[in-house]
């Protein structure tokens, strides 16, 4: 399981301020921590970055790789910022990852960059016309992206399919559809296609204390479905791994030693699998 450390995102206030001031300290501190906690790639999410995106991405890539011997995931919709980042990326630590192409024609040029710089590319299974309705629609879009990747010269082994995790608080039925899509994606090629998710979106909008619980058990469910990698908090995922046996026992219908944990896992699984309707207080019911 490859963890792509998610913490360096422009959405976080501290990171955004550091990006604006080009203050290396917080960026390197967070990157180092993610690396120590088990990330294999560091995500650098600079947002749409319409102005000065090229400079910012180069600064991010070099700032991260100065202290962390890992590849970087270049996360922006600005293709020229991605290319700028790819030019300075130190491939000694591994090949870079691009986040992302999709079935939207505006995102096709990303594949050219992937081929040119031999980068891994994330293919988000959405088109121009809104969100996919179910696993089948995600797979159909995945097939389009795969065909296009080959056409542009990106080998299928270098493509990560992303089924698009949605918020459980508003789109509960998609939690299971995404798990199903991860299974379907793997069957679309031999060797199986690689998969990735933006994990923490599952708990976006949920109360703060509920978020790590949903993140962890959803991650383990995806892992059981064969997920290859996740953009996630490495610390949280390490914790998840330490609870994997508990979750598998609950799934197998066994009673585990820790009743509080058993309840927490059972209720969370019920919500993920759509057996109970999500509410912010679901753990208290």
């Amino acid at each position: 399981m490859l963890i792509i450390g998610e913490k360096l995102s422009i959405i976080a206030k501290r990171v955004r301020e550091a990006m604006m001031k080009k203050d290396k300290g917080p960026i390197q501190e967070i990157a180092t921590r993610q690396w120590k906690e088990g990330s294999g790639v560091i995500d650098a999410n600079i947002g749409p970055a319409e102005d000065g995106g090229e400079d910012l991405m180069q600064w991010m890539v070099t700032t991260i790789q100065e202290v962390v011997p890992l590849p970087v995931c270049l996360d922006t919709t600005n293709a020229s910022a991605i290319e700028a980042g790819l030019k300075v990326h130190n491939n000694q630590w591994g090949r870079p990852l691009i986040n992302s192409t999709s079935n939207d024609p505006e995102r096709f040029p990303i594949l050219e960059l992937g081929a040119k710089y031999k980068a891994y590319v994330i293919g988000l299974t959405v088109g121009k016309g809104g969100l996919p309705a179910d696993a089948g629609e995600r797979a159909a879009i995945a097939a389009d992206i795969m065909a296009r990747a080959m056409e542009y010269g990106v080998p299928l082994e270098d493509l990560y399919l992303d089924p698009l995790v949605l918020q459980i608080a508003t789109s509960q039925d998609h939690a299971l559809k995404v798990i199903e899509a991860v299974k379907m994606f793997q069957e679309m090629n031999d060797p199986p296609m690689k998969t990735v998710v933006g994990l923490s979106n599952i708990s976006n909008g949920c109360p703060k204390h509920v978020r790590p619980i949903l993140n962890k058990y959803y991650f383990l469910m995806l892992m059981n479905a064969g997920l290859t990698s996740a953009i996630a908090d490495a610390h949280e995922m390490a914790e998840a791994m330490s609870e994997k046996k508990l979750l598998d026992d609950v799934l197998a219908g066994k009673t585990i030693d820790n009743p509080a944990k058993m309840t927490e896992i059972t209720k969370t699984l019920d919500v993920i699998m759509g057996k109970t309707l999500y509410a912010h207080s679901y753990l208290e019911m």
Partner: peptide
């Protein structure tokens, strides 16, 4: 018009 918030409100009131 949000089923999850509807459930949440019922929970809060019963709590």
């Amino acid at each position: 018009l949000d089923i999850n918030l509807s459930k949440q409100l019922n929970i809060l009131i019963t709590q």
